[in-house]
Write a protein that binds this DNA or RNA. Structure first.
Lengths: 194, 194
DNA sequence: CGGGTTATTGACTGACCAGTCAATATAAAT
DNA sequence: ATTTATATTGACTGGTCAGTCAATAACCCG
């Protein structure tokens, strides 16, 4: 029963299923068979659309990264001054969506995956650089370059650091607590060098 | 040619080989066969001494964690005031040894492994809590409790955050730069609330 | 020396899995 | 209605790997 135009539907289902499976397994030790099953199709079809397991993982990564990118852009569009732009980036980074257990698990695993697979590393770098330059652009309007540079690294590391800690202890600080702590660090830095 | 007392020698060789293999592969996708070969023995012998691959990984984790723990204790023993104790923890966390590419790769992978294997999670939590309480103990002597608590989280997250970024871009900030940045954050906080 | 213990190997097994393929079904196009 | 293109399946293959085991070797003690 081939209703035409199934491809996008199947791809989306597979990407969602991949993220769910990674979340459930807590690792990338997930078989194409299981992913396909969760997406409601045979393993053969998954290969038909993606060609390989690696391509499935990369598509899932792209999906997560692009959701994140969209959220950052959305938040930046609303912010109307440099300080607000920093807040926008931080809040987007800890948006509810990125905070779902399965999303956190996927991020963490993709970080590791990027060590092995060059395409994955490239993807992650693009987003990492974009984050870095968004922060830098805003902070350079508030601080001397050297200080802006330093605070940019601090904020970027805090984002990653709170993320990884979240993955380890589910029972760590809440989304809003984390945001408040990072904001306080920024304010303290800005207040000290006006 | 069974020279007696081989067990500790073999175990050590296997643990070192495991960390090297993880570093080389950038993932836990490492076979017992390859580990054993690097350690100069048959795969059978690796199983003879450790029983399972999981036990090999856990032993490697324990080794890395205990090196880290020893380094923290060493540094704390020298520090003779609370502020110096914070520095001691930060410097121990970025000691050259922990900074070897293969060690960074192992840490990162063990973080992910802890999502899957309860024993690994337990190990990591013990060390994470020890780190947390070392920082907290020192900072409570310098700040009101609520602020000490907050700064503790910040420093802990910065440590993890800079670590994970290091794993992603080999070309990120250097060991000494990272330490200086974290120290600056601490000083800024202490300076603002004297 | 001979029985007990430790060391060590490599072959073997059972399971699992990524990716392929031939077969089938069905819609649209000519 | 025949062709053509898309959709879909599940069986199959080749390879890999964790863990087991029987066999062998060498030391130690009595």
């Amino acid at each position: 029963m081939p209703k035409l135009g199934m491809e996008p539907v199947r791809r989306k289902a597979l990407i969602d299923a991949t993220i769910s499976e990674i979340g459930a397994a807590g690792s990338l030790d997930v078989t194409v068979g299981r992913i396909a099953k969760r997406a409601g199709m045979s393993s053969g079809l998954a290969h038909h659309y993606f060609g390989s397991k690696e391509q499935i993982f990369l598509a899932a990564m792209r999906h997560i990264l692009s959701l994140y990118g969209a959220e950052v852009r959305r938040a930046l569009a609303i912010a109307n001054n440099p300080r607000a732009r920093v807040t926008a980036v931080v809040e987007a980074s800890f948006h509810r969506h990125n905070f779902d257990p399965e999303t956190v698990a996927a991020w963490l695993n993709f970080y590791v995956y990027a060590q092995t697979v060059p395409d994955a590393q490239r993807l992650l770098r693009v987003y990492s650089r974009r984050l870095h330059s968004n922060l830098m652009f805003a902070l350079r309007q508030l601080l001397p370059d050297a200080e802006a540079d330093q605070l940019t690294r601090v904020v970027a590391s805090l984002i990653d650091g709170f993320y990884i800690r979240r993955a380890l202890h589910k029972k760590s600080a809440s989304r809003t607590e984390i945001i408040a702590i990072i904001e306080a660090v920024v304010d303290r830095h800005l207040g000290a060098t006006p």
